[in-house]
Amino acid sequence: MTDLSLFVPGTSLLHRLPAGAKLLGLLALSIVTIWLQSAWQVGAVLALVLVGYAVAGIGPSLVARQVRPLLWFLVVIAGVQVWTSGWQMALTVVGTIVVLVLAAALVTLTTRTTAMADAVVAACRPLRVVGVDPERVGLMIALAMRSVPVVVGIAQDVRDAQRARGVRFAPQAYGVALVVRSLRQATALGDALLARGLDD
């Protein structure tokens, strides 16, 4: 599934760690950040996360790409914090966000989607007692992954058809055509699931 995932192939220690361990580590880190008080502490944790990127062999440009889409929010938040609580507080708050975002992205970049899905299914196993079927969860994840490229293909067809008729982009017509054709696809998929023994 490599062409549909953010995973960066590699053989580093972080790549080889089991997905479950990385997710637990991320959880632990996010709990730690609740107690971070000063900009220095945040800086230390941020340095630790950046070391993680170095270990995984992921370069600065990919690190920057994780944060860039947040810039607008970070600027607003920093501005408000400087104004109300001073620059120290602004650094702490913005730094904590960057730490969490970078750490979470590091897990994503070093873990295959399938390994992550297996970890989720394993994590669901204790939930069996409350009626969650872990296998059904895994099946739904797989089905959804399969459906994304199929529906994206339908979306391209719909766009092309509208362009061929010289229609300017009309969100309403586009939306109706996309959803109706996707629901037809779903009916066919439901038939196929039944034919292939989903009810066994």
């Binding site: 959804a144 529906v151 969100p171 996707s182 699931l193």
Partner: peptide, 23 residues
Amino acid sequence: RRPARDLALVAVFVGVIAALGLV
């Protein structure tokens, strides 16, 4: 028919939400 059909509808709509993000 419902379980299979509902499962398919839920999965396919994930694709719809993703496709709308691509516009």
